[in-house]
Design a protein around this nucleic acid. Structure first.
Lengths: 190, 190
DNA sequence: GTCTATACAGAGATAGAC
DNA sequence: GTCTATCTCTGTATAGAC
């Protein structure tokens, strides 16, 4: 992956987080990346190609900041909490990524070609949380009658719902985090 | 409200549900409504005006199909369930409405002028569910230590998260409904 | 690889007849 | 109220020089 490609993709994440997938304009992306529109077409096939590459880029970034929580040394129950709360954070980088990711999710409703990568990422996230829940259950820090798959799916879906309300100004970050923390208790029980 | 206006708004809901807010094209809307583009500008100020009116229209439709569940004669606990599951249904009209609603929610992240109406609708929905939960609690069909406001907010946010996964093909309708039903039990307890 | 300049299509919006 | 015709602007994408 060339320098330039990365530079353009980083700019794309910023533009998507600001204007949405639907609002991404090639001239604006060019300005944001500090290059000409022609150069963008030299590195990417077309607008759809840019979008696909940007999504991929967003996923990789997410996987990066997610890994530590997944593999940390704390007990699994704590790691579940940390991993879920990760998406509801004020860190600039994570916030941009989260907004862009939400946009991708919403766009997939209307662009079937985005569905497959979306499903893959969502599935991977679910599976990670599920594995942690299962560990925690075997470990005794989570009630024995909990269904790890269902709990994980509900909690990640809740994170998405809360995130969207946060991004669209219907919910403060603090309240979103509190609601999620309580949901984790209800799902996993102490 | 004139016939024509309504006809155009109904068409707008269909187009938004199919192509999204960003994908709404005036010429396509005109075709869908069976009128000329000029007539649309006769009835609405501009594109943004159409969007605002469409959002309002969607809300009113939602309130209509929501009312029966709200005021039904069953016990409140049953009504909570019915009201939440309402959004996850295969009925064509409700599905279109739900998709369009999700689109507007997602768009509000990037269009501040959509935030206020969005907050109002979300708040009204939350309040309705909260009131039912409170009734059910006073009535004994819901555990006494449940926080009606928090439970309502979590459940509606979960509905939105599950809906979006359903619309984008990451989750089947049946599984979404099952996950939600279980969440209601966890939140309210029998 | 990167730019400037530009072709081309499609969208929003209006003029003016009926 | 409603249409046909059209103007204008913006966005995607490419040609061709460097």
């Amino acid at each position: 992956m060339s320098e330039r490609r990365t530079q353009i993709l980083e700019a794309a994440v910023r533009v998507i987080a600001q204007d949405g997938v639907r609002g991404l304009r090639i001239p604006k992306l060019a300005t944001e990346a500090g290059v000409s529109t022609a150069l963008i077409y030299y590195h990417f096939s077309d607008r759809a190609g840019i979008l696909r590459a940007a999504l991929d880029h967003i996923n990789q970034r997410a996987r990066q900041y997610t890994r530590p929580a997944l593999a940390g040394s704390d007990d699994p129950r704590t790691r579940v909490e940390r991993m879920l709360l990760l998406e509801l954070q004020d860190d600039e980088g994570i916030r941009l990524n989260s907004i862009a990711w939400g946009e991708l999710r919403a766009s997939a409703t209307f662009h079937p070609d985005l569905r497959e990568p979306l499903q893959a990422s969502t599935g991977a996230w679910n599976a990670d949380v599920e594995a942690l829940v299962r560990q925690a259950r075997d470990n005794g820090s989570v009630a024995g009658d909990v269904d790890p798959a269902a709990a994980a799916e509900r909690l990640t879906a809740l994170v998405e719902g809360l995130s969207e309300r946060w991004h669209s100004g219907s919910l403060t970050l603090g309240r979103a985090r509190r609601l999620l923390t309580q949901a984790i208790v209800l799902e996993l029980r102490p």
